[in-house]
Design a protein around this nucleic acid. Structure first.
Length: 476
DNA sequence: ATGTGC
């Protein structure tokens, strides 16, 4: 991206002044090196989003922003329903409610190293992974609807996990307003045997070591101690979310003219929040959010079972679960006034600051855990929402490293087998059904997650708490 | 991301 087109606010905040139909400015949080590495398309997409009806304050991009469908991945935009605001399927993304959950294990990384290979095999056997992977559950139509309404609460009610898990999930594990009736038969069909599966692409389950602590007070509140082992699960709503995204995108493209919307880019297809199509999308999307929460909850149960077979002394408790592909109704202050807004976060993590009423009691005084997944073989980070961040980008932060290279390019540059051997020499055990998938996910195909996280920290979006280093990686 | 796709 040509940095001369941006107005510098600070070393980590850059502004695009409104022009050519932009209702609000664009704001990009990143350092110079990250901005120079971004595609010009990201600039274009930030500007295009700023042209959508009802957008408030600014069209934001996080430090890991890259070119996406319509909206940039790493984009945040909020809309006021009463001022013609829209909801956009492309503003949420295909993998609805893709997100990250991190669990304590009650064990040290040293203990894990003592049986890493056995544990890796046990996890790989317990966790269905890969394209089209299926799980042990088969949902009939009534159970499907119950899952889509109940999210992680549905899973816990059926014995997958513990009641205490729920308090440590966004919205207590169940997104209200889901409408299974708005989810197509085909979407449900695709999901029938995919609950409790990891999927493919950048999804993973990792056992990690707490390698570094930056903010001891927050780490203490989060129960993170240096040298401890944690488990992180990164996945989403599988075939169901993808099908919903695909169908509504098409419907929104077809419906745009009927709503009198002239879109700067066909891919920005959207519908007024106060329209039957907008409402149907929200109902279906919320059902997909519950699907993702149920999925991560069942995977947690399978993880506990795998640990129990190898390390019976393990006690897996949930630190937090937060999504990074969502549209959520939240209260934010705009021009000194409190407003209920439809906040799209596409590849951006919610990062509520201290005192937010929606946070579980354990974190209310310190702020929300912000879980940032790295690429395979590299570090992940835990940050905490801050007061300053709550006033910027509607309380959002980055979500990961962000791709630096296409999947195709990566497969030409790396070989799965060599990467697995190389990582094993670094003490990182990778298990995956797909060598091609491994090559596509080569660490070198991603941006430096540390630079991304530093930029988010320095921009004040969230504050660094701890770095997690991978020990075992189950890759889809 | 995805029953990966012109």
């Amino acid at each position: 991206m040509d940095i001369s087109r941006l107005e510098k606010i600070s070393d980590f905040e850059w502004r695009i002044a409104p022009r050519q139909g932009m209702q609000v400015p664009g704001i990009l949080y990143a350092d110079e090196a990250l901005i120079r590495g971004m595609d010009d398309k990201v600039y274009e997409q930030i500007c295009n989003v700023a042209k959508l009806p009802g957008i408030v304050t600014a069209s934001y991009a996080m430090p890991d922003a890259h070119w996406g469908y319509g909206f940039p991945i790493g984009g945040v935009a909020a809309f006021d329903a009463d001022r013609g605001g829209v909801v956009s399927a492309g503003g949420v993304g295909f993998d609805i409610s893709c997100g990250v959950r991190t669990l304590h294990t009650g064990l040290s990384a040293e203990t894990i190293r003592g049986c890493a290979s056995t544990l890796a095999d046990a996890l790989y056997q317990a966790i269905p992974a890969g394209v089209g992977s299926t799980g042990a559950l088969r949902l009939g139509s009534a159970e499907m609807d119950a899952m889509l309404l109940g999210g992680a609460q549905w899973a816990v009610d059926r014995g997958y996990g513990e009641a205490e898990d729920l308090a440590h999930i966004e919205e207590a594990g169940r997104i209200p307003g889901a409408q299974p009736d708005c989810v197509s038969r085909q979407a449900k069909e695709r999901q029938r045997d995919e609950v409790g599966t990891l999927g493919s692409g950048n999804h993973y389950l990792e056992v990690q070591e707490v390698a570094e602590i930056y903010y001891p007070e927050a780490a203490e509140r989060f129960g993170l101690r240096q040298g401890a082992a944690v488990v992180t699960i990164h996945c989403g709503s599988r075939g169901l979310g993808h099908q919903i995204g695909t169908e509504f995108l098409k419907e929104m493209v077809a419906g745009a003219a009927g709503f009198g919307l002239t879109l700067p880019d066909r891919e920005l297809a959207c519908a007024p929040i106060h329209s039957p199509l907008g409402q149907r999308y929200l109902g279906a999307m919320r059902a997909a959010m519950n699907c993702a929460l149920a999925n991560r909850q069942v995977l947690t149960h399978l993880t506990r079972q795998a640990f129990a077979g190898v390390l019976p002394e393990a006690r897996l408790t949930l630190l937090y679960d937060v999504s990074h592909n969502t549209c959520k109704v939240e209260e934010h202050t705009v021009g000194g006034q409190k407003k209920r807004l439809y906040v799209h976060r596409k590849g951006a993590t919610r990062a509520f600051g201290p005192g937010h009423p929606e946070l579980p009691e354990a974190f209310r005084a310190i702020g929300q855990p912000v879980l940032i997944g790295g690429s395979m073989g590299t570090s992940s980070y835990i940050l905490v929402g801050t007061e300053r961040g709550a006033a910027a980008a509607f309380a959002s932060a980055c979500h990961g490293a962000g791709r630096a290279m296409s999947r195709h390019q990566a497969t030409r540059q790396w070989h799965g087998r060599e990467l697995i051997d190389q990582l094993a020499r670094q003490g990182i055990l990778v298990r995956s059904p797909s060598l091609r998938g491994i090559a596509e996910e080569a660490p070198g195909a991603y941006k430096d997650v540390s630079a991304v996280v530093d930029a988010a920290d320095r921009a004040g979006l969230a504050r660094k708490v701890a770095r997690l280093a991978p020990l075992i990686c189950i890759k889809g």
